[in-house]
Simulated scan of single mutants.
Amino acid sequence: MTRQRPAGCALALQHNLKTAGENGVPIHTLHSVGGAANSVLWTQIKADITGKVFKIPSSDAATTLGAAILAGVGTGVYRNCEDTVQRTVRIHREQIPNLEHQQVYKQVYDVYLETYDKLKDVFPKMGW
């Protein structure tokens, strides 16, 4: 693997996933839409850091599709959200974690956590 600088967002995502899991909300697969999802490299880095499979749908219009799904369920066109998603969302691509890369990113993640712990009291002063 060539040394790449992982994005802080991917490290923060891993932190959020870990926190969710520790609080009884395990997450196994992630779906990604929008500009960043169009980048194979970006979604691969996120998959490698988190160890999760990323599914990228063929449609990039998540907001519009979500509104249409809710309207369809609300008007009785579809039974529920799960049924609607099954019938309307098509997965275009999947990013599978590369375990070799994940081991390298694990070291970076540990530094991220150390840095986060040292800075977390400063975030409120920044309005975060």
Score class of each variant (00 low, 15 high):
K55W: 02
N16Q: 15
V89R: 02
L113G: 01
L17C: 06
H31A: 15
K125Q: 14
A71S: 11
A71Q: 06
E100Q: 09
H101L: 12
I49P: 02
D117T: 03
G76V: 00
L65V: 09
D60Y: 05
R93S: 10
V53W: 02
W128N: 09
A37R: 03
H31W: 15
E114H: 10
V73Y: 07
S32N: 09
Q107P: 00
R93P: 07
T115M: 13
V73S: 08
H92Q: 14
D110N: 09
I45N: 02
V53D: 04
E82D: 12
A68S: 13
D83L: 03
L119H: 08
Q4V: 11
W128M: 14
Y109A: 02
P124S: 01
R5T: 12
D83R: 04
A10P: 01
Q44R: 03
M126W: 13
V122C: 11
L65Y: 02
Y78I: 00
Y112M: 02
G127W: 02
V85T: 04
Q107V: 04
G74T: 00
V77R: 10
G72A: 07
A61L: 10
N98S: 05
V104M: 11
W128T: 01
T29G: 05
P124N: 04
Y112D: 01
A12I: 01
I96W: 06
A68Q: 04
Y109P: 03
A10C: 14
D121I: 00
C81N: 08
T88A: 11
Q103W: 00
E82W: 01
A12T: 05
T64D: 13
G66Y: 04
